[in-house]
Amino acid sequence: MTTVRIHETSRWFGNVVAVNDVTMEIGPGVTGLLGPNGAGKSTLINLMSGFLAPSSGTVELDGRAVWGDEQVYRRLGLVPEREELYDGLTGWTFVLANARLHRLPDPAAAARRSLETVEMVDAQDRPIRTYSKGMRQRVKMASALVHDPEVLLLDEPFNGMDPRQRLHMMELLTTLGDQGRTILFSSHILEEVEQVATRIEVMVAGRHAASGDFREIRRLMTQRPHQYRIRSADDRRLAAAVMAEPCVSAVELVTGRDGTTAVVVQATDFSAFVHALPVLASTQGIRLHEVLPTDESLESVFGYLVAR
């Protein structure tokens, strides 16, 4: 049971606070670190992997501070987001070099096993510079797994992967998590996290916004108020009818610069509203011209979580 513990940790760069008073514990299994771009996910991973000192607070692996202790890498593997590798080397040479740097007793066997795990044996003798983005990602993964670490940290591992590669990576992470390893991966894509992680940690603007079982957080996300902008043949009558729906919390009739009107609706239950609206329009005999969600960006979803 290996646990990464972050306690009241902050990290700032000059006047910019990248990570703000975060406390979390990452245990065995697959944990997704979710948040929009710029939320502080990479900074947090850099703190956990010993590449950044916390400005305040502590980051520990089983009670031992991570920063400034290179022996921690015997137990920890890192798949960085950056693409750059030793491009002139072949995949095999690169992974073998990583095994040798770990001073493993049989580096060739470890490199072979690791390349097999990520299904890169067929391409192992090609120079890395000829690899696709997905292949690079898998070789990076092989280099991080070569010493069989208890903890694996991955920064945006699905970036640039095609659907098949993505699926393979997801299966691999699930398998590694099932083996009892502590896996943490960051992503800004909700669906990726949903499919792999059993537990998620949400970061927004440097703060730890939510933590826990995925289904609970997903429920919070889907049940947040949704806003729609609707144009119809009779906006005023539609506004009155929509307001009578229990899933609607607010309605506003707005006039644009060009003089056209629209109804802005705030619904508390996304699912109920999208089912009720067409039925309501049909029974009232109002033709709907346009229905636009206005707050579907990931930032607004995360922003809502923070506000709670």
């Binding site: 890498y73 920890l76 890192l78 960085p80 590798l85 030793y86 280099s143």
Partner: peptide, 13 residues
């Protein structure tokens, strides 16, 4: 380039 990370994530002084 950042490839130094592959050296620094090793238990080498």
């Amino acid at each position: 380039e950042g490839s130094i990370v592959y050296l620094l994530t090793k238990p080498i002084d």
